[in-house]
Amino acid sequence: MGEMQDYIARLEGAERELVERIRARAVELVPDATEGMSYGMPALRYRDSPLLSVMSAKDHIGLYPFSPTVVSAVEGELEGYSWSKGTIRFTAEHPLPDALVDLIVELRRDEIDAAKQR
C-alpha cells in the first residue's frame, strides 16, 4: 500500500468509504498518479507534482487540489459547501458529487500537464 491507502485504512465508516471513493476516482482518471506526501499530507502525485489529497477532520472532510486556480474554476459548483483557495470542505452526509470530483481531478491534471510542457 501507499501513503494514502495507509491513511484511509485508519479511517472508519462512511468517511473511510467516501475518502476511498474519491481516491479511486482520481486514480481511474489519472492512472499514472502515485501515492506520496505533499505538504505533510498523504496525497496522490502526478508527474512529480501534488494532484490531490483528501483528509478527514473533526467536523468535515477536506479535499485539497493544491491549486487555488482549480478551486476558483469550480467556485460556481460549491454552493452549500465551505471552501477557501486551498480546500473544499464537505461531510459524508453532504458529499461532493462525483461529477464535481472528476472535474477537479481533470482540471488539476491538465494544470500539471501544462506546467510540465513549459
Rank of each mutant, 00 (worst) to 15 (best):
57 A>P: 03
117 Q>V: 14
116 K>Q: 11
70 V>G: 00
44 L>M: 09
12 E>C: 05
36 G>M: 02
12 E>D: 15
105 V>Q: 07
9 A>Y: 09
8 I>R: 04
48 D>E: 14
107 L>T: 03
108 R>M: 02
54 V>L: 02
115 A>E: 13
27 V>I: 15
67 S>M: 07
28 E>L: 13
15 E>K: 12
78 L>H: 03
47 R>C: 01
112 I>Y: 09
113 D>Y: 08
78 L>D: 09
111 E>C: 09
57 A>M: 14
9 A>C: 07
44 L>V: 07
36 G>P: 07
74 V>F: 00
48 D>V: 09
113 D>P: 08
107 L>F: 05
29 L>I: 10
41 M>Q: 11
38 S>F: 04
11 L>C: 07
53 S>H: 08
108 R>K: 13
21 R>W: 11
88 I>A: 00
19 V>A: 05
66 F>P: 00
98 D>G: 13
79 E>M: 08
17 E>P: 04
94 H>R: 14
22 I>A: 01
43 A>M: 08
14 A>L: 11
114 A>K: 14
52 L>E: 01
111 E>L: 11
24 A>R: 13
70 V>I: 07
100 L>K: 08
43 A>R: 01
36 G>T: 12
86 G>C: 07
55 M>F: 06
52 L>I: 05
105 V>D: 02
94 H>M: 04
25 R>N: 10
88 I>P: 00
18 L>M: 12
30 V>P: 00
32 D>A: 14
98 D>S: 13
10 R>S: 15
72 S>R: 13
16 R>T: 05
105 V>W: 06
77 E>D: 15
98 D>H: 11
95 P>M: 07
7 Y>L: 03
59 D>Q: 13
110 D>P: 06
77 E>P: 02
99 A>S: 15
21 R>G: 11
23 R>K: 07
25 R>W: 11
109 R>L: 04
107 L>H: 03
57 A>C: 09
108 R>I: 01
34 T>N: 04
3 E>S: 12
26 A>N: 03
74 V>K: 04
26 A>E: 02
57 A>T: 10
